[in-house]
Each structure stands twice: as C-alpha cells, then as structure tokens.
C-alpha cells in the first residue's frame, strides 16, 4: 500500500513538474509575441493559441501533483481540529463518493469528446493559423487518468491513517516561501530546545 502511494506520488509529481516548465515557454513565447507585435508590427498568428494551450495543459497536468501535495484548497477550519483518524474516515467516504464520478467522467466522456475532435482534426478558431486543438482536448483524459491513480493513493492514505492514526505525508517537495520560512523557524526553535 505504501509502495503504491509512493509510486502514485512520484508519477503525479513527475508529470506535474515536467509540464510545469511550460510556464517558461509561456513566458518566452508571449514575450516574443510582445516584441514582434509592438516593436516590429508583425504579430504572430499563433501566440494567443499557444498561450492558452500551454496554460490549460499546465494546470490540468498539475492537478494530481497538487492533490498529492495537499495543495487543493479545503475549508479546513473544522477539519484541522479533528484527530487524523476522524479526518481519514471522512476523507475516505468523500473520496469514494465525491471524487471518482468526476474523474471517471474526465476519462470516459473526455475520451468521447476528444476522439470526436481527433476525427475531424479540429483546429483552433481563434486565428486563421489553424493551430491544432484536438491534442489539447485529450489532455483532460490524461489529467483524469493521473487523478484517478492519485485518488486511489489518497484512499490508501486514508486506510493507512485509520490503521496507524497518522497521515503518511508526501515526500518533501518545494514549499511556498512562507511555509519554508516557517519550517526553518520551527527547526531552529527545536535545535535551541535541544542544546
């Protein structure tokens, strides 16, 4: 069970982080558009399509990664006061009945939707450049698959927590500046207490 959780975390993390680099492409690509459009008066016909395709791919593919890192916002003002076991019990039920219908729809209906788009080689309507978007529509299927795998891992996490009374956290990853600074401070205080 732990093995599967670690595998799912790594899988989600790998995809999320790899596609995260699209932000650099977006930055340079859109900056290039700004240059040719405003300085050379020769806008590209593809920059706009590229930017939303990269944005959409980035956030979809990062969905499972964010889930594994506990990054999806929760209204957790009550939740965080509970014992881990209570949290796990509630989460387990909600993952089973709330999480999977949508994720399966992403995979199954998303497949139907995008294969229709593949069948006529759909292109973007935003410009006459004809930037393909059928592959972009398939990203939701990929994102759904990653979420499904991560969702199973989250269920395992709940089961594990019900047994041990403790959450199995994801392995250490990048942290928000504020979290990193807070952790650093906690460690300092701990060290001071020990010495």
């Amino acid at each position: 069970m732990i093995g599967f959780i670690r595998l799912a975390d790594r899988l989600s993390g790998w995809f999320g982080k790899t596609f995260a680099w699209l932000i650099l492409l977006m930055t340079f690509g859109t900056s290039y558009e700004v240059f040719v459009r405003y300085v050379l008066n020769a806008p590209t016909p593809w920059a706009f399509d590229m930017s939303f395709i990269m944005y959409g791919t980035l956030f979809l593919m990062a969905g499972a990664y964010t889930l594994s890192q506990g990054g999806h916002v929760r209204g957790d003002f009550v939740y965080r006061l509970w014992k881990p076991r209570t949290q796990a019990a509630v989460d387990l039920v909600l993952y089973l009945i709330f999480f999977f219908p949508g994720v399966l729809a992403l995979i199954i209906t998303g497949w139907k939707y995008s294969s229709r788009s593949w069948s006529y080689g759909e292109v973007s309507i935003n410009s006459p450049a004809g930037v393909p978007i059928f592959q972009f529509k398939s990203v939701m299927v990929a994102a759904g698959l990653l979420l499904a795998i991560q969702g199973v891992a989250q269920i395992f996490r709940c089961v594990l927590c019900l047994r041990t009374g403790e959450w199995l956290r994801a392995e250490k990853d990048v942290e928000e500046t504020e979290e990193a600074l807070i952790h650093q401070r906690e460690q300092e205080l701990e060290q001071r207490a020990h010495s």
Binding site: G16, F19, Y55, F59, T66, Q69, G71, H72, V73, V174
Partner: peptide, 14 residues
C-alpha cells in the same frame, strides 16, 4: 516553476 504549477492548478481546478 513548481509552485506556479501548484497554485495555478489550485485556482483553475476550483
């Protein structure tokens, strides 16, 4: 880069 992806995913999945 990674934090951007996570926060974007948080907002956009919402």
């Amino acid at each position: 880069v990674y934090l951007t992806a996570r926060t974007t995913a948080m907002v956009c999945w919402l």
